[in-house]
Nucleic acid binder design. Structure first.
Lengths: 205, 205
DNA sequence: GATTATAGCTAACTATCGTTAGTTAGTCAA
DNA sequence: TTGACTAACTAACGATAGTTAGCTATAATC
């Protein structure tokens, strides 16, 4: 790993633990194993480090979204692939998204950092909203809309369905603690199970 | 309002906007209309201000919980009072809780501040969890448990019901923006409406 | 009227902040 | 071998942090 990458990921970890203002260039440098002034060989300023973290996360996020929601093509075509197996697929979406933001070495501290900085920094606020609220809700609204049209889901406001599916994931993420991983995952799966029992049309058997 | 109270509420507002570390005693003093050194006539340190905010919120929170969830007595007795009018009452709980933490002059900035500081400050983290996650979930779990026993709600895991009821409120709070109040309130009520459609047993009419 | 307490002030302390200048050792290409 | 580049370093800059000491004016108390 290059020194630049090491600075970036160390800064992310420290920012997530103590906040942007709570981490000095000297602390960061010490943690990396160099002197504060040397950081400026890699980044032009402290803010530059922060912005680079944002850019790095944006790139990784695009990758993971494509990885988790494998079904390619338009959302209509994507929805077809869920027909007949909504619960497993929903489990996969919820679990994948959750584990990524709860445990990934980059995404987990990023979520904490951006949560902490959302009110202090306009860009952080926008990223928080887009990544953890609107982005997730919009995608899932579209998904459920198609599942309703295809008769897989009972007919009601897809925005509310998306809210009912995603909000518990969001809350469990916000309250996630490594020491209670198993318990949290069980709750998550119970939620998805209950969710599909409520919203997925019973199959004629 | 005494100077001490003014310092407290001004500090809360500034902390919620720029974070604890992002607000200097001089800025706070200027905003209050005095000099930084004068603050020490009222508080022993910056941290003392922070802790005083926590104590003040704890007091106000107890009051509001009692105000919103009016039914007194044990939770079993409380649940009886919901019989036959679950949707209106749920609407009241969700709406009351939501509006309080979204718009109250103390609770709204407090929620932002504590959200920002939760990972940096152990006490703030505990307060966040207790006030916005566990406290709400535990109370509602108990409530729904009783509503199930009394045959008002369909029979399933009360913890999951509580999660399904509260998580959307939590998410809407986290994404609350004054400029979209009406839209958010509509979504909130749609959620409650849909929630009771799914969980409240149909009354024989 | 004298005394005490309250609550503001100025000035200054030490510590630390982000950042810059200038230096040095190592690497690699011409 | 030289020269350019990289990435570390030491030292220091001005600004600002939280806080303290000591002063003053007003209000309350004896």
């Amino acid at each position: 790993m290059t020194t630049k990458d090491l600075i970036l990921i160390t800064a992310l970890r420290l920012f997530s633990e103590r906040g942007y203002d709570g981490v000095s260039m000297r602390e960061l440098a010490t943690e990396v194993g160099i002197k504060a002034a040397s950081i400026y060989n890699h980044f032009s300023s402290k803010e530059d480090i922060f912005n680079s973290i944002l850019v790095e996360m944006q790139n990784r996020y695009e990758q993971i979204v494509n990885t988790i929601n494998v079904p390619a093509g338009t959302s209509k075509e994507a929805a077809k692939q869920y027909v007949g197996m909504p619960e497993e697929k929903l489990q996969q979406i919820a679990g994948g998204l959750f584990l990524y933001f709860a445990k990934d070495e980059f995404a987990a501290p990023f979520r904490k950092m951006i949560t902490s900085e959302q009110y202090r920094n306009t860009i952080a606020g926008d990223v928080f909203m887009q990544m953890f609220i609107n982005g997730a809700l919009e995608y899932q609204t579209e998904l459920f809309k198609n599942l309703i049209e295809q008769g897989e889901f009972i007919d009601c406001d897809p925005e509310i369905i998306a809210l009912h599916f995603y909000a518990p994931v969001f809350l469990l993420l916000a309250s996630y603690d490594e020491t209670k991983e198993q318990e949290t995952m069980e709750t998550l799966y119970k939620h998805v199970n209950q969710f599909s029992r409520l919203y997925v049309k019973r199959r004629s058997e």
